[in-house]
Design a binder for these strands. Structure first.
Length: 402
RNA sequence: GGUGGGGUAGCGAAGUGGCCAACCGCAUCAGACUGUAAAUCUGACCUCUAUGAGUUCGAUGGUUCGAAUCCAUCCCCCACCA
């Protein structure tokens, strides 16, 4: 691959790049020295559930690996143990050493669905932070002014709105920046919301006599609601570890307009191919549903393989397009004695309590076999194999126990 | 240390003695419509087989026939000025 080809590949989909010239120079230098670049990505170990939003950056790292570079994946175990009160949630629970370890392990499993383990270096930042003295912390802090920190967009807003900003939050960018020093990062990337932190890494590296890292930001992927960025706390995410069925179903719930971003950011599809598909949908030669079906299959395939992808798609069509029963469904074991419908639903896990079950029945969402039931006081005599449906997604099959 | 503002259901936010299980918005769930969705409309949304009952408004104790609302003590949070 020529240098220009590499650069084109590596800078695709980026939002900010500081700077293109530096990247080029660094790539040349690395080639001359016959060493791979070190590409850093930091991860917070408190949430080991990777989702498609994380994949945007991971995909980019993967592209770096394809160009022969090394990914340095930093697990913020030290910071995780302290607990980061970033933004709204006042204080996060502190994680124990064991939890952090466990999370880190789960992290690696998920990350390697995209990254190549052979070209990945995993580091824990407790390695350099645990032995650090307070003197060292103060010296590090001396490199940054409060005005600089307040320049960060969210800090500026919160300060203006008289919202609290914890000192820990102020320190966080520094912690992250120091990671860059310790692993001698050539490039660091992150979401656009990370721009400030990434740039601070450059400053701190310079202060430590290192070449400043090249900084790249990638778009934030909107979640299933189509508005907010995908995040676990908002619950609008597709997790790497979701089942094929879940992944596919969630993908199909993405709006038509948003799906193009998923093609680009999750699947790294080249822009011209996406444009071609958009054109096909616009002139009516392709149905948006079919395009989305393709999106769903390709996302499932990425994490679970082609067979699972096809199956998830078929299953979805059967259950939702044709309103038929899914292949397999949870079972509820009950004796063959009359039971209140509401209680049966709770037993079957179709409702959290009889209150919810009552609502569902009253709303006309519940069917026993093929018959809609709207009487909240209905008594049911269970028969083996009886299917209870609640809404579009809730299914359970009755098993009789002696 | 001082001054001021707060703690109400998943979140945001009204309510300041009875009409309060508590307006409203968001989120969520369901129904209709679809292409599966989104958008839109409708309904539900503390718990309980329920035209009723039970437990809520930071905590505890008190006043009162009656308290989210009044009093006392305590706990917690925030901003500002030092």
């Amino acid at each position: 691959m020529t240098l220009d080809e590499q650069i084109r590949k590596l800078t695709a989909r980026t939002v900010d790049l500081h700077s293109a010239e530096e990247l080029k120079a660094r790539l040349e230098k690395a080639a001359a020295e016959k060493r791979p670049l070190r590409i850093k990505l930091g991860a917070d170990p408190s949430a080991p559930d990777l989702h498609l939003g994380h994949c945007v950056a991971l995909n980019k790292l993967r592209e770096f690996q394809e160009c022969g570079h090394t990914v340095v994946f930093i697990i913020g175990d030290f910071t995780g143990m302290i607990g980061d009160p970033s933004g709204k949630s006042a204080t996060r629970p502190q994680l124990s050493r064991e939890q952090v370890k466990e999370n880190a392990k789960s992290y690696q499993e998920q990350v390697f669905k995209i990254l190549d383990p052979a070209q990945t270096e995993i580091r824990f930042n407790s390695e350099w932070f645990s032995p650090m003295t307070f003197e060292h912390v103060i010296r590090l802090s001396a490199h940054v002014t409060v005005a600089q920190l307040l320049a960060r967009d969210d800090f500026a807003k919160r300060y203006a709105a008289r919202q609290p900003i914890s000192l820990v939050e102020f320190l966080y960018p520094l912690v992250q920046a120091y990671d860059s020093v310790m692993v001698k990062a050539d490039v660091e990337l992150g979401g656009t919301d990370q721009l400030f932190n990434l740039l601070l890494g450059r400053e701190i590296q310079k202060a430590h006599g290192l070449d400043p890292q090249i900084v790249m930001t990638l778009p934030l992927l909107e979640g299933l609601d189509g508005v907010h960025k995908m995040s676990k706390s908002l619950g609008n995410y597709i997790a790497v570890n979701d089942t094929p069925r879940e992944t596919f179903g969630k993908t199909m719930s993405v709006s038509d307009e948003l799906m193009w971003r998923y093609f680009s950011l999750v699947l790294c599809m080249p822009e011209d191919e996406i444009a071609a598909m958009r054109a096909a949908v616009a002139d009516g030669s392709r149905h948006p549903r079919d395009v989305k079906d393709e999106l769903g299959r390709r996302i499932v395939e990425k994490f679970h393989g082609a067979a699972a992808a096809q199956e998830a798609s078929d299953e979805f069509k059967r259950v939702f397009s044709q309103a038929q029963l899914p292949d397999d469904m949870p079972e509820v074991a009950v004796p063959a004695e009359p039971i209140g419908l509401l209680n049966l639903m709770v037993k079957a896990g179709l409702a959290a309590g009889t209150g919810e079950a009552r609502r569902l029945v009253a709303a006309g969402a519940v069917r026993l076999g093929d018959d809609k039931v709207t009487d909240v006081r209905a008594q049911v005599t269970p028969t083996d194999g009886l299917v209870i449906r609640s809404g579009k997604r809730g299914f359970a099959r009755v098993r009789i126990i002696g």
